[in-house]
């Protein structure tokens, strides 16, 4: 498997500190962006790598850039999380360079759906919702990187 592990603890800690404050600001409760993540039938570890890379990029290139109208408390948390994501990207990057991170159609479709969901909303609302749904991404990483290794 590449990457062999993903240390999400710094992200979990920072997210825990801002989660409630972020989710209060989410005005579109009946809409989700990462909803399909858990229903995706990931066929191989290679798919997991591809989706991890694309989801990290989704957050880094789209979500974390939005800092307007965030309280100072949330801004600090988002800064901490976004910088942790840079470190996580550096964990995945070698896998791509060694061609261990190709994208199957299933993985590509899944991440395309997430980006499409994001585009349905105005950028501020989409960013706030995606921030609030970080827990979905964290759970997905735990399921794919930690639960399997602990039961292997």
């Amino acid at each position: 498997r590449c990457p062999s592990s993903m240390d999400m603890n710094p992200v979990k800690q920072s997210f825990q500190e801002i989660k409630d404050a972020v989710q209060v600001n989410d005005t579109f409760k009946n809409v989700t962006i990462l909803s399909n993540l858990h229903s995706v039938k990931v066929l191989s570890p290679l798919d997991t790598c591809c989706m991890t890379r694309k989801l990290l990029e989704f957050y880094v290139k789209r979500v974390f850039k939005y800092r307007e109208e965030l309280s100072l408390h949330i801004s600090r948390g988002v800064s901490s999380i976004s910088n942790s994501f840079l470190t996580l990207q550096r964990t995945v990057q070698p896998c791509k360079e060694k061609s261990l991170c190709p994208c199957s159609e299933a993985a590509t479709n899944a991440t395309r759906t997430i980006n499409n969901n994001y585009d349905q909303l105005e950028v501020g609302s989409a960013a706030i919702k995606s921030l609030g749904e970080l827990g979905v991404f964290i759970a997905w990483i735990d399921k794919n990187y930690h639960q399997e290794t602990s039961t292997a």
């Binding site: 800092r67 800064s79 976004s82």
Partner: peptide, 16 residues
Amino acid sequence: YQGEYESLYLSHVWIP
């Protein structure tokens, strides 16, 4: 302060 993320993507953003 600003972290590497801010200096890469949001160079105008500094956090008290």
